[in-house]
């Protein structure tokens, strides 16, 4: 038996929007502690790990561990239905997800907070997905950069109009994002900056060792679709380890993206 209710249904919509282009199908793993997902993109270069802790739900009940395979695009389509009506407040639907006893379908029910006489039911088919789970050990990172998520998003977008890859380098100077393409080169340096009005506007750089790694911008740009989930993003870098780009979901958990660095032949 799984029942969950999320007052901020918009949050689940944002989560789906952030991962559906990277991963087509994924297993949602439900346990008493919460709702999680780990899935790789089709080329097995990037991975998304999602955690939504049970405490973050208005109501959460999961009697036995279960895994629900879903097509994320289909789920995003269904969740979009909750927000397409302009009269009912689209951004705050309540949501309940109840798998049927056979667990072959999942019933997604939206109830709008401000028009409680309207209930929309959606039933989505579940799928059997043979997904490979990777064991991700805790690691010490050479450098951890926390910066405004909108700034990171803008840098990735700007650089991808010039080159295909980004070199992220952390030194005492700050964090440098560089690219190179047919038309020229681009460098953006962000220095540590904690003298801001709001804490979410700060750029904080923790560096144990200088580090410089190259990544495909296509993936970085895909990760930045999670920007609406959090004002800040944390980028953890270690030489010869995949980068972790983390968006915290307030009081609930996180979406983490892992991306393997490019390596010189």
């Amino acid at each position: 038996m799984l029942e969950l209710r999320l007052v901020q249904g918009s949050l689940l919509k944002k989560v789906l929007e952030s991962i559906k282009d990277l991963v087509n199908d994924a297993n949602f793993d439900c346990s008493a502690t919460g709702f999680s997902l780990q899935a790789m993109d089709s080329s097995h270069v990037a991975l998304v790990a999602l955690l939504l802790r049970s405490e973050g739900f208005e109501h959460y009940r999961c009697d036995r561990n279960m895994s629900m395979g879903m097509n994320l695009n289909n789920m995003a389509k269904m969740l979009k239905c909750a927000g397409n009506d302009d009269i009912i407040t689209p951004s705050r639907p309540m949501m309940a997800v109840t798998p049927s006893p056979s667990c072959s379908k999942v019933q997604v029910r939206f109830t709008c907070c401000f028009a409680q006489d309207k209930i929309a039911d959606f039933e989505m088919k579940l799928m059997d997905i043979d997904s490979e789970h990777l064991g991700i050990p805790e690691a010490e990172y050479h450098a951890i950069v926390r910066m405004p998520s909108s700034e990171f998003s803008r840098i990735c977008k700007d650089l991808s109009s010039i080159g295909d890859t980004v070199v992220i380098s952390v030194t005492k100077e700050g964090v440098r994002f560089s690219t190179r393409g047919d038309i020229g080169t681009a460098n953006v340096v962000c220095r540590q900056n904690t003298t801001v009005d709001k804490p979410e506007e700060a750029t904080i750089i923790e560096m144990n060792e200088p580090v410089s790694l190259t990544f495909a911008l296509r993936y970085m740009n895909s990760f930045t679709k999670a920007t609406p989930l959090s004002n800040t993003v944390t980028i953890s870098l270690s030489s010869e380890l995949p980068v972790v780009v983390e968006y915290k979901i307030a009081e609930m958990g996180y979406v983490r993206f892992y991306l393997a660095p490019k390596i010189e032949d």
Binding site: M40, V45, L241, D265
Partner: peptide, 14 residues
């Protein structure tokens, strides 16, 4: 030239 390794080069399958 740069090579794009897969994640399995860094993490093991569980």
């Amino acid at each position: 030239a740069q090579n794009q390794p897969k994640l399995s080069a860094f993490f093991s399958l569980r």
